[in-house]
Amino acid sequence: MAFKFALLFGLVAFASACSQAPGTTTTTVTTTVTTVSADEGDEGILSSHDRSVIRKTWDQAKKDGDVAPQVLYRFVTAHPEYQKMFSKFASVPQNELLGNGNFLAQAYTILAGLNVVVQSLSSQELLANQLNALGGAHQARGATPIMFEQFGEILTGVLAEELGSAFNAEAQSAWKSGLAALVAGISKTLKKSEDLADPQTKFTGRQIRDAQRTWENIRGGRNAMVSSIFIKLFKETPRVQKYFAKFANVAVDALAGNADYEKQVALVADRLDSMIAALDDKLQILGNMNYMRYTHAARSIPRGVWEDFGRLIFDVLSSKGLSADELNSWRGVLGVFLNGIAPKK
């Protein structure tokens, strides 16, 4: 259990910073950490060898001053909705972040937290002193398991770039095990009942609630939304239009007003509307996804087309003023739709 709690502590700097309200004062507590050179005999869920590899690679990576800013920068640029959670640079243009003092200060706060984690991997006594203080704080701060998964993916990506050949298969395996332990441990703390996925539909109560509520404000313009997505998709990838035989050879700029095209737009928009309305009806939503899967299989539309369509839907939703939590719910809903209609082979 030592590593699970250690890594959880290290990323508290990330979670607590996200939730800091405007105008609050941050008190920095400096903790002196004694590096433990020998493991204390508890293998726990991470082997002593993996702990050693993590320490070694981290000692190399932390010497590079670019690691911390790059991790945080890539995190907020890959997931722009999370930038709003950092009050001190929520409105800073992304191309100015790496030169922003508040952004850099936060990046190095996270680095310091991670450094404590790595140096504390084997010291259960040090970790125990932190557990009572942490308690259930993460849930109140609004951190979600997917945020930690995404942060971990970006962290390992930056480490791989910075360390090059030193971040070999052995190091990748050690970090993967460590981050998996974090997500497994923290998920139980953060998830409420509404965040638990239905074993059959794979949707959570929160996803259903957020998607249906926000869709009510959008559905009136769903035909125009779907049409704009089709036009953009056809321009990005012209071959996709060939899957629609009735207007495959119509110039993209001439599609608006074409009877066959408008009929297809209305069909897709209404299907999307009915699927969202059925999210809380297990039999109906599973039936909808199965119908979509089998009726489109004969046309051999590859998964990549569905991925692009989902990405463009998400782009539209992102422009509608939805909160980070609502966008996270939509990300989950669209992911389930994708896997239900065009599962990976």
Rank of each mutant, 00 (worst) to 15 (best):
F3H: 07
F3N: 03
L8D: 06
L8T: 12
A17K: 08
C18G: 12
P22G: 10
T24M: 07
T32V: 05
A38D: 13
A38V: 13
D39H: 14
E43D: 03
G44C: 13
G44I: 05
L46A: 11
L46E: 00
L46C: 13
S47K: 09
S48N: 01
S48V: 08
H49E: 15
S52E: 05
R55I: 11
K63D: 08
D64F: 15
A68S: 07
F75H: 14
T77R: 04
H79S: 01
P80A: 04
K88F: 04
F89A: 00
P93G: 06
Q94C: 02
N95R: 07
N95D: 11
N95L: 13
E96C: 04
L97T: 01
L98T: 01
N100F: 09
N102C: 05
F103W: 00
L104R: 00
Q106R: 03
A107S: 15
Y108P: 02
T109P: 04
T109H: 14
I110W: 09
A112L: 01
A112Y: 01
S120N: 13
S120D: 06
Q124T: 15
Q124M: 12
L126I: 03
L127G: 05
L131H: 05
L134F: 15
L134E: 02
A137I: 05
Q139G: 14
A143D: 07
M147S: 04
M147W: 07
E149K: 13
Q150G: 11
Q150I: 07
T156Q: 06
L159S: 04
A160D: 08
A160Q: 13
S165C: 09
F167L: 07
N168G: 06
S173E: 04
S173W: 06
S177I: 02
L182P: 11
G185W: 12
T189F: 15
L190E: 02
K191I: 06
E194Q: 02
D195R: 12
T204K: 14
Q207K: 06
D210V: 09
Q212Y: 03
R213F: 12
W215L: 08
N217G: 02
G220M: 09
M225Y: 14
V226T: 06
V226S: 11
S227L: 14
I229M: 12
F230K: 10
K232C: 11
T237S: 09
R239F: 11
V240M: 03
Y243N: 01
A254P: 13
A256S: 10
G257S: 05
V265Q: 12
A266Q: 07
A269Q: 09
D270H: 07
R271I: 04
L283F: 08
M289I: 15
M292F: 13
R293A: 09
A298W: 00
R299D: 00
E307V: 10
E307N: 13
E307H: 08
D308K: 10
R311V: 05
F314M: 12
D315N: 11
V316P: 03
L317D: 02
S318P: 11
S318V: 05
S319D: 05
L322G: 09
R331A: 06
G332Q: 08
G335F: 11
G340D: 00
K344E: 07
